[in-house]
Simulated assay, not measured.
Amino acid sequence: YHFEYTECDVLGSRWRVAIPNKANTCTGLPEPIRGTNCTFSCDEGAFLNMQTQKCQKCAAGTYSLGTSVAFEDWDTLPAGVITYGKMTNKEKAGPDCSNSTWTPKGDYVASNTDECTATLSYAVNLKTNGNLFFEYFYPDDSIYFEFYVQNDQCQSTDSENRGMRTSDSWSLHKVQLRKGSNVLYWRTTAYDLLGGAVKPVMLKNIQVSGVSYTSECFHCKPGTHSAKPG
Rank of each mutant, 00 (worst) to 15 (best):
Y144S: 15
K22G: 09
A46E: 11
D140R: 09
L65I: 09
F218C: 03
A46V: 06
N129Y: 14
E216M: 14
H2T: 12
G80M: 00
N112A: 12
T128L: 08
T224H: 07
K54W: 09
P95K: 15
F218H: 07
T101S: 04
Y84A: 07
L120P: 00
V149L: 03
L65G: 10
M202K: 08
G195C: 07
K105R: 13
P104Q: 04
V175W: 02
D152P: 10
S171T: 13
T117H: 01
F133N: 14
T25N: 09
S64A: 05
Y1N: 05
K105A: 14
S159A: 12
Q56D: 08
D96I: 09
E31H: 12
G12D: 06
E146T: 04
F40V: 00
C116S: 06
W15R: 11
L120V: 02
W170E: 03
H225M: 14
K127V: 12
K221H: 10
T36D: 03
K54Q: 14
N129M: 09
S156W: 14
H2L: 06
D168P: 08
G210K: 00
V10P: 02
T214Q: 02
G12S: 07
A46C: 10
S13N: 12
A18G: 10
Y63H: 06
D158C: 09
G195Q: 07
K179E: 10
S142M: 14
K92P: 00
Q207A: 11
N125V: 02
F3T: 05
T113W: 06
H173Y: 08
L177M: 08
T62R: 08
P78I: 03
R14T: 06
P222N: 13
L132V: 02
T157G: 01
L203W: 02
C97I: 12
V175N: 02
C42A: 03
V149Q: 03
Y185M: 04
K174R: 12
I82H: 09
F145A: 13
D73H: 05
E135F: 09
P104G: 03
A79N: 03
S142A: 12
K127D: 15
D141L: 12
T119F: 00
C58W: 04
G94Y: 07
V211D: 00
P229M: 04
P30W: 02
C42D: 01
H173D: 04
S226G: 09
V69P: 00
W15Y: 15
A227V: 12
H225Y: 15
G163V: 09
I82Q: 11
I82K: 07
C220D: 12
S13I: 11
D107V: 05
A59T: 13
P78M: 01
T101D: 02
Y148L: 11
L77A: 01
G45D: 08
F40Y: 06
D152M: 14
Q155K: 10
A79W: 01
Q150W: 02
F40S: 01
Y136Q: 05
F134K: 04
A93N: 14
N24W: 07
Y108A: 09
C38Q: 10
K221Y: 07
Y84L: 08
Y84W: 13
P200H: 02
C220Q: 08
S169E: 07
I19C: 05
N89H: 15
S98F: 06
P78N: 01
E7V: 03
T214L: 03
I143K: 04
S156I: 14
F134M: 10
A118M: 01
E91W: 10
